[in-house]
């Protein structure tokens, strides 16, 4: 597929500190890409560089094939940006904030109003359109910021924590809209919520100290890093013999024990049944199977050591 965003050896310095270090990657048109990483990993800066909020010191960013530095005025019309901070003008209404940006992008009034009302309906903020921004909650404001970023119908939507400050219902409405836009628009976002990223992505970029350390879908990332499932069986009494016997079973990885409980990892679920068969003679009190997720991936121990 055609690349919507392409970075070539992009580097960004803030004073003398390297924030982004020679990043090279492309984002396919219409894909939904999530960026995760620790604080200070460079996630927000990466979004700022791609969206033109701040230029990189080194390398090139191409938006729809155009160099974002040299062809800025053409490129900016194709990007919608939602910053992390709440930044609507508090002394205007929600509607006026959105209309102002729409007019800046030369959208005619009729199209602007139709689009605004449609998006406001999708995000359930119609009753707040006439409210002063200073009088409404941050979750509603964040939804208005999403509308503002979409008002000029950009090809690329870049969002820094798009659902920050939102309650569960607002979160659902926002993602309903964004998932509907997937395919039509390229969406690149940063989130602190790993659950959110697990639920909504075509691809995940893991950033660490300004470098991409992992890149791919969740299944690919988990598969390449460590096994899929974590198993736990609690016995009434876990003898040394039984523990040794279970540890030596093929495909059973990283076995450990805590009291009468045995913990291990297995790539396939049937590993669990092999263990259960081998342990039929012992009395079991509790069993659990957990599919590993991003949280486990981000856990420093596993991310660095993996499963041996």
């Amino acid at each position: 597929m055609e690349a919507s965003i392409t970075l070539k050896k992009v580097g960004k310095l803030v004073k003398d500190k390297t924030i982004l270090a020679s990043l090279t990657f492309g984002v396919e048109r219409g894909s939904l890409v999530a960026i995760i990483g620790d604080n200070e990993a460079g996630k927000s800066m990466l979004l700022k560089v791609i969206s033109g909020v701040e230029y990189q010191e080194y390398g090139q960013v191409f938006i729809n094939g155009l160099d974002s530095k040299k062809r800025r005025l053409e490129v900016m019309s194709s990007i919608g940006f939602v910053p992390h901070e709440i930044d609507l003008d508090p002394w205007l209404t929600v509607e006026q904030n959105i209309q102002f940006i729409g007019l800046l992008y030369r959208i005619d009034t009729e199209t602007l109003n139709t689009r605004m009302v449609q998006l406001a309906r999708d995000l359930h903020i119609i009753p707040f359109l006439k409210s002063m921004v200073s009088d409404i909650s941050p979750g509603i404001i964040k939804k208005a910021m999403v509308i503002r970023s979409l008002i000029h119908d950009p090809d690329i939507l870049i969002m820094d924590d798009p659902t920050a400050f939102m309650d569960a219902e607002s979160y659902r409405h926002t993602w309903d809209l964004l998932l509907r836009l997937r395919g039509e628009k390229t969406i690149l976002y940063v989130s602190q919520s790993l659950q959110e990223v697990e639920e909504a992505h075509d691809r995940i970029l893991v950033l660490e100290d300004g470098r991409i350390t992992l890149d791919g879908s969740l299944d690919k990332l988990l598969g390449s890093t460590f096994e899929y499932h974590q198993f736990q069986i609690e016995f009434e009494e876990l003898s040394k013999n039984l523990y040794n016997q279970l540890s030596k079973l093929p495909k059973v990885k990283n076995v450990s024990r805590i009291g009468n409980s045995i913990h291990f990892y297995g790539k396939e679920r049937n590993v669990f049944f092999d263990v259960l068969n081998a342990a039929t003679s012992a009395i079991m009190k509790d069993i659990s199977v957990k599919k590993l997720g991003l949280q486990d991936l981000m856990d420093a121990k596993y991310a660095k050591d993996g499963i041996h």
Binding site: S51, V53, M76, F81, D87, L104
Partner: peptide, 9 residues
């Protein structure tokens, strides 16, 4: 509100 203005073309 200043950042979106500077991002306009």
């Amino acid at each position: 509100s200043f950042l979106p203005i500077t991002l306009a073309p």
